[in-house]
């Protein structure tokens, strides 16, 4: 095989088949890392995580260049972002429930969990609007303001995306499509929510506590 002679094949025929494995009885979907969608979600989280890392890099680069920080503005208010963080962390619990009940293919519990998660997303969005009001700096005031709005805006974009996704999935589970592989989608939606939670914690510290410690 290593050094076969070179003869262009003139055969038009494909090789005949020899069946050595039958996959007829294999399952038609699965959960977690056995599912391709899970890997897709991880890959998107990796790319977006890289985006967050870049934005955080921009923020600290500007801190390093300027020396004093924040630039001609008081540090942002703490109340609304802290409330946001608490609600976000608490939402991890119904999120975990959503994933677990989904894996059990328990439709009524999954519907309840998804409604809770949709409401949580809406509440968080309202708090986020209040949060923008307490920044004490506009994006076009100076580079500090630009960096703050960049980080908060980037996270809000993720919050909005996941909220939209959750609402659509919730509606879907109340229709006749709510069975089978859709339960696996519930798990992947829950996974993405963890990404939204995890990416917030460093941003919370950087935007609201770092200027007070610097």
């Amino acid at each position: 095989m290593t050094k076969a002679s070179f003869q262009p094949q003139d055969s038009e025929e494909l090789l005949p088949h020899r069946i050595v494995l039958n996959v007829r009885s294999m399952p038609s979907y699965a959960y977690g890392h056995r599912s391709p969608i899970w890997w897709g979600t991880v890959a998107f989280a990796a790319a977006e995580g890289m985006g967050f890392a870049m934005a955080i890099g921009v923020y600290f680069y500007l801190v390093f260049i300027n020396g004093n920080w924040p630039l001609s503005a008081p540090p942002p208010d703490l109340f609304w972002p802290s409330l946001f963080t608490v609600v976000l962390l608490v939402s991890a619990w119904p999120n975990a429930r959503a994933k677990r009940d989904g894996e059990q293919e328990n439709l009524s519990a999954t519907r309840r969990n998804l409604v809770i998660m949709s409401l949580a997303g809406i509440v968080l969005l309202v708090i986020r609007i209040m949060e923008f009001n307490g920044l004490h700096v506009r994006w076009d005031q100076n580079a500090y303001g630009s960096a703050v709005w960049l980080l908060l805006g980037l996270h809000t974009l993720h919050l909005l995306t996941d909220l939209g996704d959750t609402v659509v999935l919730t509606v879907l589970m109340f229709t006749r499509h709510g069975h089978g592989k859709r339960f696996s989608d519930v798990g992947d939606n829950a996974f993405y929510w963890y990404f939204v939670v995890a990416s917030w914690l460093p941003i919370y510290l950087i935007l609201y506590w770092f200027p007070r410690w610097w």
């Binding site: 005949p16 088949h17 020899r18 069946i19 050595v20 494995l21 039958n22 996959v23 007829r24």
Partner: peptide, 11 residues
């Protein structure tokens, strides 16, 4: 490795 027939999965 398989010049005469291709081992395959069916089902």
């Amino acid at each position: 490795a398989h010049r005469d027939s291709l081992p395959v999965a069916a089902g």
